[in-house]
């Protein structure tokens, strides 16, 4: 549907798709990801998705972190 938009949420990326992190609009999620080096400007890729579609695992600067769809929604992504 909206896959042609340039800016979307991390939750809208499909498996294997890549993007650049933009604004993270929830403070707790932002601060947690900040600690792990997952900040605006970093390239990410959706690696795999849990059996029930949630959470998802993303590759960010060489390592994998998992995150729930609910939190992925607050992360803005520029698709590449």
């Amino acid at each position: 549907m909206c896959q042609n938009r340039l800016v979307l949420n991390l939750s809208e990326l499909r498996k294997g798709e890549k993007g650049i992190i933009g604004k993270i609009s929830r403070a707790d999620v932002f601060l947690k990801l900040l600690d792990m080096g997952c900040v605006a400007g970093e390239e990410i890729q959706v690696q795999f998705i849990a059996p029930m579609g949630d959470p998802i695992a993303i590759l960010v600067s060489g390592y994998t972190i998992c995150i729930r769809i609910a939190e992925a929604r607050v992360i803005e992504i520029k698709k590449i």
Partner: peptide
């Protein structure tokens, strides 16, 4: 609680 997320590193 307000802090409600699940963010975790997955080691290789």
């Amino acid at each position: 609680d307000v802090k409600n997320y699940f963010i975790m590193e997955m080691p290789v």
